[in-house]
Design a protein around this nucleic acid. Structure first.
Lengths: 341, 341
DNA sequence: CTGCCCGGTGGGAGCGCTCTCTCCACGGGC
DNA sequence: GCCCGTGGAGAGAGCGCTCCCACCGGGCAG
């Protein structure tokens, strides 16, 4: 732990000299130390310690052709990425998994529609070994870009893109079915749905789950929101206007459910007595804070992030050879019963 | 734009051969092209284009000793980092500035109190040219770590650490003074303060500004919160209990102000008639959504992020030689008058 | 007309590492 | 007792790039 501000950093050469071995042996020790006799291992370790040696990552990756870093690409036309706890939790999971494997996370924020060129250039540039991306909208150019760059990429959320790219997603459809099934088991017959933006598969999949259970449902019982509180309120008002006799609502996320809740109360409907309400996500800070607390479909967001990273790392390890595309993973959802339904 | 999935990527050598020049000349063109005659420049450019050449960053940084990346270190013992829009906006600013200079952002999330070793190792490892960090608490080990790593680091927020590290912060003290001055100009005499956690300089600086204007203020008019809505509500209740005669409140951020607002209303106090209320931050999504909308002290958060990055890049350019520590920057605040005061 | 200067170019070394290949020493089988 | 097999160590060749330095030729001063 010596000072090394100026005075060039020690190289492997220096370590080898100090330990009285060759550079090759020193390298072997630094990289795991298999096939080197214990006394030499100790000598090298000690030299490393004394010199404060740290391998030069550039030199290493020049020969290994691995960078030990992956990109996380975030398309964020509308500042949603950060404001939505969904992404932050996913990033947490990703970060945990990556750092456990000593892989670094390079954050690539898309700064606007004209910025994809930079992203693409970076990805082809060999700065990172692979990429993680979030597929927000059906027309997102990201899937095209990453495959164009020939870079192994795992997506968060099923891309609208019909290509066979690996992704991690919650069982949106199954979760939605469970939500509706629960409302039905409560004896509700006029079940409305507040959908998310229909250019996202998360929304369309949840809508599909709703329709699975209610194939004959009145189309007027479905309203489209935008995953925000305000849009949930708006959609709820619309539904009450169109079908005042509704007795249950399944909202495609908790934020919209909380907006709906407010409107229901303003219209004098008691929850759950008059109208039962189920959300999606189980964002605890929202679902537990409402009055009454929200019954909702829980998805393991951080775990999904972790899985994305794991899938990518595995694909990377399996090798440069062959189209080692990992298969996608769908994580289960669970219904969390609170008071709203 | 040829396929290059397999088949090794073209090197400078290949470009040079195709253009009929030496590797040195090709390199010159790729790096700006000064001192090379136009016809040759064109030839090289064309070869680059045809081959789809992209420089190998590892090889480049091996010799230049620059990585073209900076770390953003985020200590987040309590998941605050992402949930607080403050940081996300700051990151946006940072990302914009960095990508404009083709510098990458490596995100280092501290995964817990035991994780500082990894961070420190990474920073000393030569993976990045400099670092950006957020100083959250007075006892934060980050300032010590980055200087121990001998790495140029710019902080977001004045560190409690008494060291002379460069940082970017809003004029918290001046902003607080302005808030109180405004309340005084409204004729309020019993002005309370809801402070943030007092182990953060943002909180203590704002408290200091409050005290600047009210040196004789009753200590019972100050309550400590935690920058959250709930803590603001709690602090407000406490203040009303202790000093029911108060006629104004300056809260150290908008979140706490919104919590205070709710409690004031629950206690039958009209805002601003009975109690005038001023917040801090001007988080538009909060300040404009309350009823009445919040008068608050605005700080240019994204701009602060941009400044952090700019300061770091400048320091990096000024050179490896000498202790090129950039000086700190304090950004001005402005009072935004809405209806609450 | 000769020599010098200078812009433009190429040759080549070397950044710090990994990895293959060679070499050596030792031990065991016949 | 000899030879071969085996495991451990070292020498050396690059990985792809930048940059120093030598070189070359043309223009201009002497």
């Amino acid at each position: 732990m010596t000072e090394q501000y100026f005075g060039t950093r020690p190289t492997l050469e220096a370590v080898a000299a100090r330990a009285g071995v060759s550079r090759a042996t020193a390298s072997r020790v630094v990289n795991g130390g298999t096939g080197v006799r214990p006394p030499l291992v100790d000598k090298v370790r000690q030299a490393v310690e004394e010199l404060g040696y740290v391998p030069n990552p550039a030199a290493r990756s020049l020969v290994t052709r691995r960078t030990g870093a992956v990109a996380v690409v975030v398309a964020e036309p509308e500042t949603r990425f950060f404001s939505d706890p969904f992404f932050s939790q996913q990033i947490r999971g990703i970060s945990k998994e990556l750092s456990a494997h000593d892989v670094q996370l390079v954050l690539l924020l898309v700064e606007g529609p004209d910025d994809y060129g930079r992203i693409s250039r970076y990805l082809t540039g060999g700065h990172v070994d692979g990429a993680l991306a979030f597929s927000l909208h059906d027309d997102d150019p990201l899937p095209g870009i990453t495959r164009g760059a020939g870079m192994l990429t795992v997506f968060g959320g099923r891309p609208g893109f019909p290509a066979a790219v690996p992704y991690v997603d919650a069982d949106n459809r199954g979760g939605a079915r469970e939500a509706v099934r629960h409302l039905q088991s409560l004896g509700r017959r006029r079940i409305a749905h507040i959908a998310g933006p229909l250019d996202q598969t998360a929304s369309t999949d949840r809508l599909a789950g709703y329709r699975d259970m209610l194939p004959e449902a009145d189309p007027a019982l479905v309203a489209e929101g935008a995953f925000t509180t305000a849009s949930g309120a708006r959609a709820m008002a619309e539904l009450l206007d169109r079908r005042p006799e509704l007795d249950a609502v399944f909202a495609a996320n908790d934020l919209m459910a909380s907006g709906a809740l407010r409107v229901l109360r303003e219209h004098g409907r008691r929850v759950p007595e008059d109208v039962a309400l189920v959300g999606f996500d189980d964002m605890v800070s929202i679902a537990e804070a409402t009055d009454p607390p929200l019954t909702t479909v829980r998805q393991e967001i951080e775990e999904m992030g972790r899985l994305m990273a794991r899938l990518l790392l595995r694909g990377l390890d399996q090798g440069v050879s062959g189209p080692a595309a990992p298969s996608s993973v769908i994580t289960p959802t669970t219904l969390v019963r609170r008071a709203s339904a």
